Simulated assay, not measured.
Amino acid sequence: MKAVHFGAGNIGRGFIGLLLSQAGYEVCFVDVNEELVSELKARGEYPVTLASEGQETTVVKGITALNSASEPEAAARAVAEADLVTTAVGVNILKFIAGTIAEGLKLRLQGESAPLHIIACENAIGGSTQLKERVYGKLDDETKQKADQRVAFPDAAVDRIVPLQQHEDRLKVVVEPFYEWAVDRSQMFEGYTPVEGIHYVDRLEPYIERKLFTVNTGHCSAAYVGFLKGYETIQDAMKDDEVAAHVRAVLEETGAALVHKHGFNSAEHGAYIDTILERFRNPALTDEVSRVGRSPIRKLSPGDRLVSPAMLAFESGLPYKSLAKSMAAALLFDVPEDPESVELQASVRDIGVSDTASQYTGMAGEHPIMGELMEQYEALKAETEAGRS
Rank of each mutant, 00 (worst) to 15 (best):
G365F: 04
S113C: 15
V307M: 05
T356S: 14
G263S: 13
E196K: 02
V27H: 05
N33D: 15
A98L: 04
E242F: 06
G14N: 08
A328R: 01
G9D: 11
G44N: 13
E180H: 02
D355A: 15
L84P: 00
I118C: 00
A124Y: 05
H262M: 05
E122G: 02
H5Q: 12
A114E: 14
N216H: 09
Y25V: 08
A328S: 12
G226V: 04
M370S: 13
I97F: 06
S113D: 08
K261Y: 03
N10Y: 08
G24H: 13
M188I: 12
F314M: 07
G365C: 08
G197D: 10
R185M: 05
D141N: 11
F314A: 15
T58D: 12
A75N: 03
G62E: 11
E278S: 14
R160L: 10
A182Y: 08
E45W: 00
G270Q: 04
R134A: 15
F153T: 01
K299C: 10
A257M: 03
D83S: 11
S358Q: 07
R185F: 06
A156D: 09
A256T: 11
P302S: 07
A357D: 07
I101L: 14
Q376D: 04
I297T: 13
N123Y: 06
E383L: 04
L139D: 08
V135S: 08
R248V: 07
V89Q: 05
T254S: 15
E268G: 10
A23W: 03
P319A: 14
Q165I: 05
L40P: 00
T214A: 15
K172P: 02
I93G: 04
H269R: 10
Q130S: 14
D140W: 00
R170Y: 03
E343T: 10
A82D: 09
D169A: 12
A74F: 09
H260I: 01
L331T: 06
V79Y: 02
I198R: 04
T49W: 02
G111W: 09
V353F: 02
E209Y: 10
R185Q: 15
Q345W: 03
K144S: 10
V174R: 03
V342E: 11
R291G: 07
L94A: 13
E232S: 15
A357Y: 05
E26C: 12
E168Q: 14
E112I: 01
D141T: 12
L312F: 00
